[in-house]
Design a protein around this nucleic acid. Structure first.
Lengths: 75, 75, 75, 75
DNA sequence: GTGGGTTTGTGGCACC
DNA sequence: GGTGCCACAAACCCAC
């Protein structure tokens, strides 16, 4: 295999390794939510909270404000 | 904070932690592709190769699954 | 082709026809949002409004209420 | 209601109308599969067949796309 | 601004 | 009847 081929191989294998790790984490997250379900919590609500926390308070209120504006415009 | 609240908090923080790790990995992958681009390779093609290799690996379990499906259909 | 085969063929072709129509509609929706973007509106907000209207007022307030409950529990 | 409000309303109602039609089609598809089940066929297998046939059709454009990708990579 | 690809969320489905 | 799983569809994001 020539040099270029080796480099390509290297890039691909590094990506594949990362992708595997990512998959493991995704599975972990699913597992946590499964636990939460088992403990009687509502996953949909939990997801929404995580989403909102990630968005940040300012961005959230801004979005809500826009929604309110549009809804008012509609009447 | 009551007990339920603590459990909710725990679930959410665990998810958030996992999500962060995932994001790091996703960034790493992007970085690898950026390197590849810098080295003169075509990212689109590399992604396609990764995809095909994954499909190859997945094909096995897919095959198993399909066999099961058909056997079920017959039986 | 035997009778069973004909029936299977019929089922499949009916499904495929429906699937095509569905795809057309999905494309139409995308187009409408593209128009809205062109008219200077925020698609994300529009989508959120559509979603909320679909959910219905009661379900929406119930969800919000649950989210509030969880968030309060977290503190 | 001002003009902007009217336009927003129009966009949203058009989307909602499309969404309803889409839902009808999705229900129709479900119904067809329900019929097939009643006729003694295995829905899972039927879905798989539809999927494969679609893949077959898509494969053409996919192939074109891949050729383009590689040509681009070479060129 | 548009399109493609990826990721996330929802719903059906089979199994228990 | 409920629960976990899987596949489809929606949303998001980046690159062009």
């Amino acid at each position: 295999m020539n040099e270029a081929g080796q480099r390509i191989k290297s890039f691909i294998e590094r990506v594949e390794k990362m992708a595997e790790e990512k998959q493991v984490i995704m599975d972990d997250i699913k597992e946590i939510y499964a636990e939460a379900t088992g403990a009687g919590f509502d996953v949909k609500v939990l997801r929404e909270i995580v989403k909102r926390r990630k968005m940040g308070k300012d961005a959230l209120s801004e979005l809500e404000s826009l929604i309110a504006t549009y809804e008012e415009a509609i009447g």
